Amino acid sequence: MTLEEYLGYRQRVGELDPDAMKKVETKSPPIDATDFALRVSYVILNSGMRWTVAQDIWSRMKSSLIELGEVGDTFGHPGKKKSINQVMSNRTEYFEGFRSAWQNGPEEVIAFCETLPHIGGITKYHLAKNLGVDVAKPDVWLERVAARSGETVHDLCGRLSRQSGHSVSTVDYVIWKACQQGWWGL
């Protein structure tokens, strides 16, 4: 992908959803254990699921997590439900682990993310982004775009970040959204 292609997608994404662009550009680390646990829970819920479906479930689940500290009957996937409940129950301990990793840099945060329940080798990047690390998630769509450019996802997003002055996370989001909208020819 060229810089010009990326910038064209960036403009279209900004016009489509300016609020989302502001959120992706201003990710900061969680402020407390509950904020941390909610971010982890969202990524667990969202993994392997269409974004639109996850948003609907999340709108029901979030209040239960805040009020009860567990999923309750808002969601039925047994593995994800168990993992989310575990994160909520142990949020203080996990948050302390995150804070320790944060002090040691982005690579430590990414490695820490993979130690959490239901977070795997790709999802750890999604979670790290949601926790404030400026990194790309090498999902299927970004892998295809990068392969066509003859690069890895991290190389592609890093190059476009340097060329555009946008964060790696922003570049990642713009490319993902362009694919999700069907603008990029897969």
Rank of each mutant, 00 (worst) to 15 (best):
P117H: 01
A136W: 05
Y125E: 01
S149G: 09
P106A: 14
V109K: 02
G165S: 10
K129W: 07
T152P: 00
A146E: 02
V145T: 11
H126E: 06
K137L: 08
S149I: 10
N130V: 05
H126D: 11
I110K: 06
E151G: 04
H118A: 12
R148M: 12
L142Q: 01
E107W: 01
N130G: 07
T123L: 07
F112P: 08
V135K: 02
T115G: 10
H126F: 15
P138Q: 06
P106I: 06
V145D: 04
H126M: 09
G132A: 05
S164Y: 04
P117F: 03
I110H: 08
V153C: 05
K124S: 06
R162T: 11
H126Q: 09
G165E: 06
P106H: 04
A111V: 14
G121C: 00
L116G: 08
K137Y: 09
A147Q: 15
E151M: 15
G105Y: 11
L116Y: 12
T115C: 10
P138A: 04
C113S: 15
R144M: 05
L127D: 14
G158Y: 05
H118M: 13
V153T: 13
T152C: 00
I122P: 06
E114N: 10
R144C: 10
E107P: 06
I110M: 04
G121S: 13
E151W: 05
L116N: 09
D139V: 07
I122M: 12
D134V: 01
G121H: 09
C113M: 11
L156G: 06
V135G: 03
A146S: 02
V109Q: 10
D134S: 03
G132T: 05
T123E: 14
K137N: 12
K137E: 04
H126A: 15
A147I: 06
C157G: 04
P117Q: 08
E108N: 11
P106E: 14
E108R: 15
S149P: 08
A146G: 07
H126C: 09
I119Q: 15
R159N: 11
I110F: 09
T123Y: 13
K137A: 10
L160R: 02
R148P: 00
